[in-house]
Write a protein that binds this DNA or RNA. Structure first.
Lengths: 124, 124
DNA sequence: ACTATAATTGAATAGGTACTCATGTATTGC
DNA sequence: GCAATACATGAGTACCTATTCAATTATAGT
């Protein structure tokens, strides 16, 4: 866009504005509030180091709670809490076998996004 | 740091049920701690609704602080704080023209991940 | 110089969150 | 039945964070 400041004063944030056409374009392309809210919740699953490591581990193969706790060197309770978070967010699924509960990623799509995030930080 | 007692006890099922081969596989595939930490920080930028909406808007074209504040119906200060976060995370860049500061995404890569997250929640 | 505007910034605060601890539930084996 | 194991869960807590508010900086116009 042009860098020329258009001081075409219209009603805005408080009193003055701004680049009306640019804002209108951005507004028209902005998804609904429920979509952006759900999307930020989705990314929140990856935004914690513990959860991201859990997801990375499950990208290899299914693991039980105790496996993950041992792998990450954390308490079983802490892992269980995070797994509940991930399950409610529909990123992981579980199956029960005897006393053991095995967790796995819901779909490969999650693995793709995970890998892209890791690739991004490895480049930059 | 003796103030916070760290429970080293991962003795839960350590002897019995851990699936050693599965854990070893996951461990070998796990990136270094600094990588997973950086990756979770990267995803953290997308994990807040306000930041995600800012990124979505900037995916269209560059905008000044006031534009974004008007678009999202939030205070200019709140937006400025989040833009600083995004800039430090190297997701956005800025250029100054007169009194106005224009923000834009650092690269198209960010837009791709953003779009994938939005697509994910629109499907499910 | 003075005024107005765009943006930044620090402090304060309310709400969120990730862990620990203790307890509860389900399953297995004796 | 009882004990042990694997996991889940609620409460408590310390930390984190997203916003508001007030003050400040920078630029432009008069």
């Amino acid at each position: 866009m042009s860098a020329t400041p258009r001081t075409e004063a219209v009603e805005c944030c408080e009193e003055h504005v701004v680049h009306t056409a640019a804002v209108d374009l951005a507004r028209s392309a902005m998804p609904d509030e429920e979509i952006t809210s759900a999307a930020s919740d989705f990314f929140k699953a990856f935004s914690d180091k513990t959860r991201l490591r859990i997801l990375t581990a499950l990208a290899q193969e299914e693991l039980c709670v105790c496996d993950i706790a041992a792998l990450l060197g954390m308490s079983q309770s802490a892992i269980s809490h995070q797994l509940r978070f991930l399950k409610q967010a529909r990123l992981v699924k579980s199956r029960k076998s005897g006393k053991t509960v095995y967790y796995a990623l819901c779909d490969d799509h999650i693995q793709v996004i995970l890998a892209q995030g890791i690739a991004h930080v490895q480049e930059g």
